[in-house]
């Protein structure tokens, strides 16, 4: 996980973040030791392309830019995320590597759940695990649908 300007333990509760709203408190309680509230300074990277995908980010405050960098062209922001949104699911997939960069556009606060603990909790509590994935899938689906529309370059006419 990238260094953050400050971090402190976070007592997870359904009210901590909209994504957690429908989870049972005992499941969240079990994850609490693996969760931290972190603050990232403007321009600090939360995660880097190719780096180990070791956390799930629940954004509380600020703004994060998802960037793609290629040698041929300047960095391009393809999406920004703000409070109430989540970031990063590569930790679910076997390679456990990030596929893009995420940069704090301004000071940003997030709850970061440790990926290993989250994977373990999903395995150990399949009912909560299914609920977790069912909450995450529509977000992934919506972002994929939005990316498809963006690819059409609809404003070019």
């Amino acid at each position: 996980m990238s260094a953050a300007r400050s971090s402190r333990p976070h007592a997870l509760a359904p009210s901590s973040h909209p994504f957690l709203r429908d989870f049972d408190p005992p499941f969240l309680h079990g994850l609490a030791p693996a969760s931290q509230e972190r603050t990232f300074a403007a321009d600090e990277y939360l995660l880097r392309d190719g780096g180990e995908a070791d956390g799930f980010y629940l954004l509380l405050h600020g703004k994060v830019a998802l960037e793609i960098a290629t040698p041929e062209r300047p960095r391009l922001t393809i999406q920004t995320l703000g409070p109430g949104e989540v970031l990063g699911w590569s930790w679910l997939l076997p390679s456990h590597r990030w596929h893009l960069d995420a940069r704090a556009v301004k000071e940003t606060r997030a709850i970061v759940l440790e990926a290993a603990a989250l994977r373990h909790a999903i395995d150990a509590h399949p009912r909560d695990g299914v609920r977790f994935l069912t909450a995450l899938l529509p977000i992934i689906g919506q972002r994929l649908a939005n990316t498809r529309i963006q690819l059409l370059d609809i404003h070019r006419g």
Binding site: P74, L76, T77, I78, T80, G82, G84, V105, I149, Q150
Partner: peptide
Amino acid sequence: TTVDAAGRDWYGDVGLVTARIPD
């Protein structure tokens, strides 16, 4: 305001307009 893609000099939102509707 949101744009489909931007460089680092843009401090606004990037993404589809529909992403702003849920909130």
